[in-house]
Amino acid sequence: MPRNAPRRCSVSRMGAHRETLAIEIDGAAKRYGGPGGFTAVDHVDLAVRSGRVHGLLGPNGAGKTTTLKMLLGLVRPTEGSFSILGEPAGPTVRARVGFLPEQPYFPPLLNAEEVLKLHGRLAGLDAAQIAARGSDLLARVGLEGRGTTRLSKYSRGMLQRVGIAQALIAEPEVVVLDEPASGLDPVGQRDVRNLMLELRESGTTVLLSSHQLSEVEAVCDEVTILNRGRVSARGAIDDLLNVAGRTSVRARGESAVLPADIQSVMEDVAVSGSVWVFSVPDTAVRAVVDILDDNGWTIESIVPKRQSLEEYFSHMLEVTENEVA
C-alpha cells in the first residue's frame, strides 16, 4: 500500500457518485510560501453524500480547517476543485450553506438578534422571516430571552450557540460545522449532537469537523480522516471500527473465572462485577456460547468486535508516525 494511502475505503468515490453528492472536493491542495514551503493540505478528496452526517477527523494541523476554508472560499486553494450541491463552490451556491467556524466570534457590541438579522439579510430573508426564524432558533439553541443582550456579555458557550443559530438561519441544505461542541458543557454538547441528528432527519447534509471522537462516533454515518494534510482513511464508521474476524461476547456469571476452555481463545478481557466482556475468533463463537451455557453463564450480547474510534485513531497515527520515521 502506498504511503499515506487511505487504509480502508468501503465508501469508494465511484460508489459515492451513484448517490447525489452534497459536497465534492477533488485534489484540494494548499501550499504556503512558494516552492519548498509548507504544505497544509495535500491533494485531499472528499465526497459527502446528501442527507448524511460526514465526519472530518484529524489531529491538530491535519488540514481539516484549511480544507473547509478552501471549500467555503475563505482561503484560495493552490489546486483542486470544489463543488457544493452539484455546483462550483462559489458565492451563489453558498447561499444554501450554513457554516459554524471553530470558536465563533461576533462583533461584541451587537446582540444575538442583530447578528441573526445580519445573516438573515445576507441570506436574502425578509424582516418577517428573520424575526420568526430568529426567535425559533434562539429558543432552539437555548438562548430564549437573551436575544437583546450584548454579545460582549456572552460566555464562550453562548457565543457557540449564537454561531449555531446563525448557521441555520436560512434553513441551509448543507451545514458545515467546525468543532461545534467546542466551549460547550456536557449538556450543550448533547444538545449539539441532537441538533445534528435532527438535521440529518430533516434531510440536511452535515459536514462535521471535530476532535471529539465520541461526538463523531455518535452522529456520523461516514468519516474521512486527515493526517499531515492527507487523507489517511475514509469510510463508514462500522467498516472502519469493526475488527475483522473477531466477535465480542458479554456474559454474566457468578464464577470468579471463565471456564478454562474459553481462556485459551479469548482476548481483550474486561471485568466489571459479575459481567465479563471479551473477544473470541468468529470461528470459535458457537463453541464458546455452548461452554458458557453449560457452565451456567448468562450471555448478554454477542456482537462483532468493534474498537473505539479513539483506539482506531491512535493506531492510525502510530502507523503514520512509523512510516514517516
Binding site: G73, T92, R94, A95, V97, P101, Y105, A123, G124
Partner: peptide, 10 residues
C-alpha cells in the same frame, strides 16, 4: 474571525 460567517454566505 467575525468575517468568516459573513464571507461564507452569498
Amino acid at each position: 474571525r467575525t468575517v468568516y460567517t459573513v464571507l461564507v454566505r452569498d
